[in-house]
Amino acid sequence: MPETNILTTIGLEHYLVLSAVLFSMGMAGVLLRRNLIVLLMSIELMLNAVNISFVAFSKFNNNIEGQIMVFFVMTIAAAEAAVGLALAVSIFKRFKEVNIRFFEHLKG
């Protein structure tokens, strides 16, 4: 029985399945949870799931552009987290809780 290199037997499909699973988990989190912190984490999860797909495609297609795109996504994700956390802090200061229903108070 020839030794099988686990690294060579992992194909593109595996990465994409992982990416899809992670993305779905993140999506479920965004749709179902009410805590703003968890929501931000779920979004982060979705972004990173997408990143995995980018890197995987980049590797298997021998195209560097996918990896470049990942840097952009990470940058945006950092900015988004900063803004999101700032909102979370101000909501927490006012209501002593970070449930997203308090955002209704932003209605004009």
Partner: peptide, 11 residues
């Protein structure tokens, strides 16, 4: 007016 519902519709 529920954001999460809208996100679900998008999904």
């Amino acid at each position: 007016g529920n954001m999460q519902q809208y996100a679900m519709y998008i999904g």
